[in-house]
Design a protein around this nucleic acid. Structure first.
Lengths: 152, 152
DNA sequence: CTTGATCCCATTGACGCCCAAATTATCCCA
DNA sequence: TGGGATAATTTGGGCGTCAATGGGATCAAG
């Protein structure tokens, strides 16, 4: 698989590290992503992680308009200044910095959520809540069937 | 990485010095930037720092005459006359002068903010405020609640 | 002579790198 | 289909390196 799909939850150890799921690491190497850039999600309390092309995608938005406009300035401040680089150690773990904790509410566990060309870091409880909300919105008007349908 | 990205906050010591983040120093040497020029940011309470090509870029803008900027005369006054040169010591620190303090409100800490081809000096608290404002503007409109990750 | 900036060296603490243990998943064979 | 062996992954922790910081000594300027 060459896209980030599904989700997994791992523990943060005493040194503040957490393993990126092997499945995601496989995608990273398959897409030949060497550098990881992380930014706050604009909508959800989550942190978005991706390679250089993620940055490119946002930068095209910045370059699109007048480079000295307020809009481009905001965007640059958020994208260029508001992100951080993540580095994986030999075992494929990353440091859960204050940056990540502040924007996600993560304390002792991290839920990795695939988003096709990138993935996100969530607090497990928060993720479940927002997922349910999104589900409810999708099903608005219809009737939910039996069962919760959550991935253990 | 050959661009200024991400951000970092360092302390000002008793002598008024602050370390430029190693990451940014690497970019400086990679771009072979020997001289640092600092000017007041036109939009935010921050000081913009860059190499000689930063000056070039502003000069091109003065010539271009763009609707969002003040006129060329003001620009020249601010850029050519209003800037200062910064010098790094052997450990990669710079003096936080009154020039910097006046335009940023910096007192005892400095947040270095990457802006791709240059970086900026901010007061940490002020940076967080303005970043949040920029985020709010980007999110203007009706989205799903983007509340901070409260895990209470 | 006094003030402040620059240079140089010491300290400290965080992070990266490495190896080992424990846990989980996968496969093979009875 | 169940049990055990084997592989893969996750988790734990020691240790060295480097960046950030502190402070004394030297130098320049008023």
């Amino acid at each position: 698989m060459n896209r980030f799909l599904s989700n997994a939850t791992n523990k943060i150890d005493a040194k503040g590290r957490v393993s990126v799921p092997a499945q995601f690491r496989n995608v990273l190497s398959r897409l030949d992503i060497q550098e990881l850039y992380a930014i706050q999600d604009f909508i959800y309390p989550a942190v978005t992680v991706g390679g250089p092309d993620l940055l490119d995608r946002f930068e095209r938005q910045i370059d699109g308009g007048d480079p000295f406009s307020m809009d481009a300035n905001d965007m640059s401040l958020l994208i260029h200044g508001g992100g951080v680089f993540l580095k994986l150690d030999g075992e494929g773990r990353l440091m859960v910095s204050d940056f990540i904790r502040d924007y996600t509410g993560i304390t002792d566990q991290v839920t990795f959520v695939g988003r096709s060309d990138h993935f996100q870091l969530w607090d497990p409880v928060c993720y479940e809540e927002k997922r349910q909300e999104a589900l409810s919105r999708r099903m608005a008007g219809g009737q939910p069937r039996a069962g919760q349908g959550e991935t253990g």
